[in-house]
């Protein structure tokens, strides 16, 4: 009996070592653990043994059977691991993906923030007349303040609002809304605007702006500050600061330009490196928008009584804001639509 056991054991070890694949393992399993095996023959001999030995031989045979089963399982696992192993160092397959233009997503994000503050999104036409682009906004025909608003004129016969042109700012929606909606209202309006500027890294004859304005009975300058601060902290980061500098715009009084604290060099460590921040030129502040309290002349032109209503307005260039946010150094990337640029901004 002892010899038989040793022989089966040794032969199994040898056969097991030779197993190459799963079907080979199955063959060995049948040979050692099947119905007609030498092991089973030995089990069948047990009742013929003296009663005192039956227990111990039975245990030894069971130990051997378990050993074989365990070893076989290990072998099978090892083989199947090897057979199913894939080399994940091969390059990935790209799931197809599309993209939304970065200016569209910036537009959407900004409008979203203002919508949460109670603003309604409004879209005005890009074609406008002189009344909407200038007169209603207190920009008289012969005033140096018109210089910054050089404009493309169109060959459409002039209408009651004067000559037709491509709007040079989104402020055109002010007159449109004020003439058609009874206050109160809070409006945010994104869109394309046009100015005859030669194209270079920071100029384009077409660019994007967002205009916002609120008209109600008790609006004041501190509301303008609150709304813009809320926007900046939501859009940039919660620790951003704003700085209001007095400025001049014909359609607001008082007027201000707004700077945001530079998000590039807020980490003073980088400044300590001795390099001047290329974004804020070391000033620590970046100009991002213009704003002010809506001028009474604008209200009068649009048929709103300035003694009953007050309002504020602001406008910002989206291209510039996107350039700052994403460190884009050339405005032309927005309009040349290189796929290597586009798919860096999937949403």
């Amino acid at each position: 009996m002892e010899k038989e056991i040793e022989r089966i054991k040794n032969r199994f070890y040898r056969d097991c070592a030779d197993i190459k694949d799963i079907s080979g393992a199955e063959e060995i399993r049948i040979r050692y653990l099947g119905r007609k095996t030498e092991l089973n023959t030995l089990f069948s001999k047990i009742p013929t043994l003296p009663a005192s030995q039956r227990g111990s031989w039975g245990r030894r045979l069971n130990v051997l059977k378990e050993e074989i089963a365990r070893r076989l399982e290990e072998k099978i696992n090892a083989i199947s691991d090897k057979e199913s192993k894939i080399d994940l160092t091969f390059p990935a397959r790209r799931p197809p993906k599309g993209s939304i233009h970065v200016l569209s997503s910036v537009n959407r994000k900004i409008c979203e923030i203002f919508k949460n503050l109670g603003f309604s999104v409004v879209e005005g036409d890009e074609i406008a007349d002189e009344w909407h682009n200038f007169e209603s906004l207190n920009i008289p025909a012969e005033h140096p303040s018109r210089d910054v608003f050089d404009t493309f004129y169109l060959d459409i016969p002039a209408g009651s609002g004067g000559k037709y042109l491509l709007r040079s700012h989104t402020s055109t929606v002010q007159g449109w809304v004020m003439k058609n909606v009874k206050p109160p209202f809070a409006v945010i309006s994104p869109g394309r605007v046009y100015r005859p500027d030669e194209v270079d890294a920071t100029h384009s004859f077409m660019f994007n702006q967002i205009e916002g304005f609120v008209v109600d009975k008790e609006i004041n300058f501190s509301h303008l500050k609150g709304v813009l601060l809320e926007f900046a902290r939501e859009f940039y980061s919660p620790d951003i600061e704003l700085r209001f500098r007095p400025h001049f715009f014909p359609f607001t009084e008082p007027s201000a330009e707004v700077d945001i604290s530079c998000m590039m060099c807020k980490d003073k460590e980088t400044q300590a490196g001795g390099k001047t921040c290329s974004v804020c030129k070391g000033k620590g502040w970046i100009e991002v928008l213009g704003c002010g309290m809506i001028h009474p002349h604008v209200f009068n032109a649009c048929g709103i009584d300035p003694s009953r209503y007050r309002g504020f307005a602001f406008g910002m260039g989206i291209d510039r804001i996107a350039m700052l946010k994403y460190s884009i150094n050339d405005i032309r990337f927005f309009y040349s639509n290189d796929i290597r640029f586009l798919n860096q901004f999937p949403v």
């Binding site: 309604s120 879209e123 109600d216 509301h223």
Partner: peptide, 25 residues
């Protein structure tokens, strides 16, 4: 201007919602 406190206004949207401009928006 930097000594003026910031505040958030509430603006009723009822009139705006009634307007065709809101629909266009």
């Amino acid at each position: 201007y930097n000594n003026i406190p910031p505040r958030i206004p509430f603006t009723d949207r009822t009139n705006m919602r009634k307007s065709f401009i809101y629909g266009k928006g």
